[in-house]
Amino acid sequence: MIVDLRHCDGCQSQGTAPQCTLATIEGHLLPEPMEWIEVYESPLEGGGTQFVPTPCQQCQNPPCVNVCPVAATFSAPEGVVLIDQDRCIGCRMCMAACPYDRRFFNWGSPPVPPEALLADYSMEHQVQAKVGTVTKCDFCVDMVRAGSLPHCVAGCPQGAIYYGDLEEDLATNGKTLVSFKDFTTNNNAYRLKEELGTHPRVWYIPGHGEAVGRDPHTTGRMPTKWPWIERAKGAVTWKR
C-alpha cells in the first residue's frame, strides 16, 4: 500500500470524517471505537499539520506475530498479517508489541448491526467481532481476491491510497495504475518508524494535502461516527 499524503486532506474538503475510515467501519461492521485505518494528525516542522492515514502496517518482520504465544496471529503466504479469532486467547501481548498502535481488543460484547449476523466468519474479513479477542486491519485480502479494492482505497475521494502487489510492481488507487518502484522512488516515499526494522508494507509519500489545495494551518478533522450503532441491539461501546 502506498499513501500519497500530498492528496490527503483528512477529508476537510468533504466536510466529513475521513472517508477511508468510514468505509472501513461500514465494510467490516466495526464496533465503536475501532478505526482500523486511523487518520492521525501530526505536526509539521515549520508549523501546521499533516494527515497520516494509518492502517495496520502489515510488517514483514511483525513484532505482533513474534510474540503471540499461540500463533493466532500469523503472516499469511501473501504477506498479510492475519488473526485467527477462534484461536486468540486474549492475552494482548501483541498489543503491547505493536509499535503502531494498530491492534484493537474486543473489550465487551461488540455491538453488531443485524446484517452482521448473516456473515460467515473468516480471518480475512473478521465479521462478526468476537468478544475477548484482538482484531485489526486485514488488508481486505478476500475482497482483492474477488476483484475489488479494499474499503479504504475505494472510499478515498481523493485517490490518495494505492493498493497493489509488490512482486507484480503494480499499485492502483482505482483510477490510475502506477509502478510501485517508480512511484515510491520518484516521490521519496518513506515508511513509519523504519528504524525499528519491522519492514512495514505501507509506504508514505510526504505531503500535507497540498495537491488537493489544503492549507496546512487549517487543523482538525471531523470526528468519526459509527452510523449503524443505533441499530445494534444491546450495543456496548467504549473509548480507546
Binding site: N66, V67, C68, V70, C88, I89, C91, R92, M93, V131
Partner: peptide, 28 residues
C-alpha cells in the same frame, strides 16, 4: 494470568499450538 485473559477457556491452545518464539510461551 488467567484473570487477565480475554478467552481464558482457550488456555489449552498454549499446549496445542504453542509458539516457541513468544516470550509469553517461555514464561509459561
Amino acid at each position: 494470568v488467567i484473570v487477565d485473559m480475554g478467552q481464558p477457556l482457550r488456555l489449552y491452545q498454549m499446549y496445542l499450538n504453542g509458539n516457541w518464539q513468544s516470550p509469553l510461551m517461555w514464561d509459561m
